[in-house]
Amino acid sequence: MISTETMVRMGELAVSTGSGDVLTSIGLGSCIGLVLVDRAKGVVGLAHVMLPERPASVAPQPGKFADTAVPALIDAVVAKGARRVRLEAFMVGGAQMFTFGGGSMDVGARNAAAVKAGLAAARLPVRAAETGGDRGRTVRVYAEDCRVTVKAAGGPETPLLSAPSAGRMAA
């Protein structure tokens, strides 16, 4: 099967319904890879969130800030046919790579908290998350079966949540 990998770079977001498509964010450090999937419809979305909130002075770039990325990604997957009530969320990243000599602000932890708060406000459950720590990570979302994988720096690609069997999908 032909599989097309779309790189979702810092501040970007992407959605897909194509069965061979893979959405990928490589090298998540303090950034968060936010994944939304509707399994029944086969719609997947990925946002590469960089900071918790958008300063008023900055031009809007929906995927870049947690406070705008969560609603923007929800809108984007719904526009592709996902049902909001069926959406499941996954989070990867939010590491603290460096303390920057003071540790005054751990951007990674703040990003994770802000994305989580945004999802809670939208009443979306977080099905699985791998955040924190001090390692970089790569996240991949496979549109074919809504599989989400994570690969820590120098490690193997492992499922964050494997595709459940059809029988358990009913509920």
Binding site: M10, G27, L28, S30, L51, M97, F98, V107, G136, A153
Partner: peptide
């Protein structure tokens, strides 16, 4: 300059974390 921190990690994770910290609110 403060003393350095040394890490071995993915290039993208290192650079994006530095940019998020230093230049994050800029385009």
């Amino acid at each position: 300059p403060r003393p350095p921190e040394v890490v071995v990690d993915q290039l993208g994770a290192v650079v994006s974390s530095v940019l998020a910290h230093v230049a994050g609110d800029q385009d």
